[in-house]
Computed example of a mutant assay.
Amino acid sequence: MAQQYTKKIIREEFIKILNERPLNKITVKDIASACDINRNTFYYYYTDIYAILSEIFQTELQIVIDEYNDTLSWEESFIVATKFSLQNKTAIYHVYNSMQKEELEDYLFNVSGNIMSRYVEKVSDGISASSGDKKLIASFYQCALTEMVLRWIASGMKEDPDTIIRRIGRLFDGHIALSLKRSAGLNDSNKKQ
């Protein structure tokens, strides 16, 4: 119990500090001091600052996975996933502009992939699309969403992601189902040949 509490405090203080300054300006000493622990205690839980960052992104990914609900659209699921970024814009921007940018990119790619794979599976119910095509469709949207979010971060996160995501949803409404039906049609025509 005390171990989980200490780890939670370390993560929370790290995020607070990351919201104040760039990642490369944060030291273990800064975090330990903010948590009122010694450096050995910090190292008992984490090998370095990057291990905290990795754990935070893994935790946030798990939250998205746990909160995914079959009644949610992919847009709603993605909006849930952006909650952490919106609450910690400066921290996300600092990670994006650091050597650990890849950690953020992987997190976004995994979140997008998880959301789109589940959504494509849900939409494909009753449609005999091939599993390869389902993966291809999910991957296409995964890549598009990841890149859009990265561009949003690079531009200073000025626009409201809720508005953008909902607009994309309206513009592309029905395209996933249509693509799945085309896959089923291609499968049927291949069987006839």
Results as ranks from 00 to 15, higher is better:
Met1Ala: 12
Ala2Met: 09
Thr6Gln: 13
Thr6Asp: 05
Ile9Tyr: 05
Glu12Ala: 07
Glu12Gln: 06
Glu12Asp: 12
Glu12Pro: 01
Glu13His: 13
Lys16Asp: 09
Leu18Asn: 07
Leu18Cys: 09
Asn19Asp: 08
Glu20Cys: 05
Leu23Trp: 01
Asn24His: 13
Asn24Met: 02
Lys29Gln: 15
Lys29Cys: 01
Ile31Thr: 12
Ala32Arg: 06
Ala32Pro: 04
Ala34Lys: 15
Ala34Gln: 13
Asn38Asp: 15
Asn40Pro: 08
Thr41Leu: 07
Thr41Ala: 11
Tyr43Phe: 13
Tyr44Arg: 13
Tyr44Pro: 07
Tyr44Ile: 13
Tyr45Glu: 15
Asp48Asn: 15
Asp48Gly: 13
Ile49Met: 08
Tyr50Gly: 14
Leu53Cys: 07
Leu53Lys: 11
Glu55Trp: 10
Ile56Gln: 12
Ile56Val: 15
Phe57Tyr: 15
Leu61His: 07
Val64Glu: 00
Ile65Thr: 06
Glu67His: 05
Glu67Gln: 07
Asn69Arg: 10
Asn69Cys: 10
Asn69Ile: 04
Asp70Glu: 14
Thr71His: 04
Leu72Asp: 11
Leu72Ala: 05
Ser73Asp: 05
Ser73Lys: 02
Trp74Tyr: 15
Ser77Phe: 02
Phe78Trp: 07
Ile79Ser: 01
Ile79Pro: 00
Ile79Thr: 01
Ser85Pro: 02
Leu86Phe: 00
Leu86Lys: 12
Gln87Met: 12
Asn88Arg: 09
Thr90Arg: 14
Ile92Tyr: 06
Tyr93Trp: 10
Tyr93Gln: 14
Tyr93Ala: 08
Val95Ala: 03
Asn97Val: 00
Ser98Ile: 08
Ser98Gly: 10
Ser98Cys: 06
Met99Gln: 09
Glu102Asn: 13
Glu103Thr: 08
Glu103Ala: 04
Leu104Gly: 04
Glu105Gln: 08
Tyr107His: 14
Phe109Gly: 00
Asn110Glu: 12
Ser112Arg: 00
Ser112Ala: 15
Ser112Leu: 01
Ser112His: 01
Ser112Asp: 02
Gly113Phe: 11
Ile115Trp: 00
Ile115Arg: 05
Ile115Ala: 04
Met116His: 14
Ser117Ala: 12
Arg118Val: 03
Tyr119Met: 04
Tyr119Cys: 06
Tyr119Asp: 07
Val120Pro: 14
Val123Lys: 08
Val123Leu: 10
Asp125Leu: 14
Ser128Asp: 13
Ser130Asp: 12
Ser130Gly: 11
Lys134Leu: 14
Ile137Met: 03
Leu145Met: 04
Leu145His: 00
Thr146Ile: 00
Met148Arg: 04
Val149Ser: 00
Arg151Lys: 07
Trp152Met: 01
Ala154Lys: 02
Ser155Glu: 10
Gly156Trp: 03
Gly156Leu: 02
Met157Cys: 04
Glu159Ser: 09
Glu159Gly: 07
Asp160Arg: 04
Asp160Met: 02
Asp162Glu: 14
Asp162Tyr: 05
Thr163Val: 09
Ile164Lys: 13
Ile165Cys: 04
Arg167Val: 02
Arg167Met: 11
Ile168Glu: 03
Leu171Ala: 04
His175Gly: 05
Ala177Gly: 09
Ala177Thr: 11
Ala177Val: 02
Ala177Leu: 01
Leu178Glu: 07
Leu180Thr: 06
Arg182Gly: 11
Ser183Leu: 03
Ser183Cys: 03
Leu186Pro: 09
Ser189Lys: 14
Asn190Gln: 14
Lys192Gly: 06
